[in-house]
Simulated assay, not measured.
Amino acid sequence: MPKADSPPAYEDALHHPKLGNNPPNPHPHPPPPAYSSSPAMYEGQAGYWAQDGFYSHGPARAAPGRSPSGMPTVIPTLSGGLPPSHAGEMDDLLSSPWDSTSVRHGFIRKVYLILAAQLAVTFSVVGVFTFVEPVKLFVIRYPGIYWASFAVYFLVYCILICCKKARRRVPWNFLLLGIFTLVLSYMSGTIASYYETKAVFIAIGITAVVCIAVTIFCFQTKVDFTSCGGVFCLLGVVLLVIGIVTAIVLSFKYVPWLHMVYAAIGAVIFTLFLAYNTQLIIGNRELAISPEEYVYGALSLYVDVVEIFLFILQVSGGACE
């Protein structure tokens, strides 16, 4: 081999101008990479090892499920970078308006079917207490039955509020709904037994007209009652205070016609409550009930309708005396 072609000595190579003043490499021969069971370490990796890492001569062939850099492959989707915990939001974004509208229409049908069944039971019980003379006379003769109906109603109402876990299950939902319907029907029947048949008919007719008119109005109007939650809460407090004052005043018989004024105010306030709850069910306003809460939606409308009937019955009963 000619001397000119022989490599320089180690000391000369250290001081070569191209190398500058770099310190000597303490590991002229770096150790091979450690053994790994991952197929990505051996499949399609072409290059050489140096002191500060692995250098590839070209694009490496990626293993299945991995990118050439060894990182897991990320497939772009329409989620916009949402984490897996927001999968429900992604479903809402991808759902079409027609799907949401059909779901809301199905929810409204369920609510009004349940409401129709409840009102049928209630007015059937009211008819028994009104038209069956022995039952009517029995309630009038024993007023304890009348007062017991109020106690049972408030007891069942408190149980219904406290049983949050039971309300999350569909069988318990319908069981509590059926019990509450029977209890409120019993209370309405005992109240109706103290009024004339003509007054009961007038109250039923006015209640039907008011409820139908309010429902049609809520479906057509652009007025948003759901944005006035604070006002409705205040109206409820006002009605409670007026009721307490009326009960105290009537016990001393100072103003005999005061109960008719209170009944008229109560009918107006619960008519507004009916409009508020109807728009919550329709769902095209600021607030709306979830389509899964059809039992709660039917219950809220049912209470409003029965309360309107009872208040109008007081007014019509006082007028017929």
Rank of each mutant, 00 (worst) to 15 (best):
R167H: 06
I204K: 04
D12F: 00
A63L: 02
F174C: 03
L155K: 08
T122F: 03
A34V: 14
F270D: 02
V121Y: 10
G58I: 11
G144D: 02
E293A: 04
Y48T: 04
H29F: 06
Y157F: 02
G318S: 04
I312C: 05
F129I: 04
L137C: 03
D99L: 13
L250W: 03
G106Q: 13
L250D: 05
I191A: 02
L299E: 14
S38I: 07
Y42K: 15
N25D: 11
P26Y: 03
F232V: 15
M187W: 10
A263W: 00
E292F: 09
H27D: 08
V214P: 01
V183N: 06
G230C: 09
G53H: 01
Y55G: 07
L82I: 13
Y153V: 13
A116N: 14
S79H: 08
I159T: 15
V255G: 12
V125R: 09
V245Q: 07
I75R: 10
G80I: 12
Y55M: 09
E293N: 03
L113S: 11
V268P: 02
K3I: 03
P7D: 02
F252W: 02
G205V: 15
G88C: 08
V237P: 12
Y302G: 14
F138G: 00
S79E: 12
E133N: 07
Y153D: 11
Y42D: 10
V135W: 10
R66G: 02
I202K: 05
Y42C: 06
V238I: 09
E292I: 10
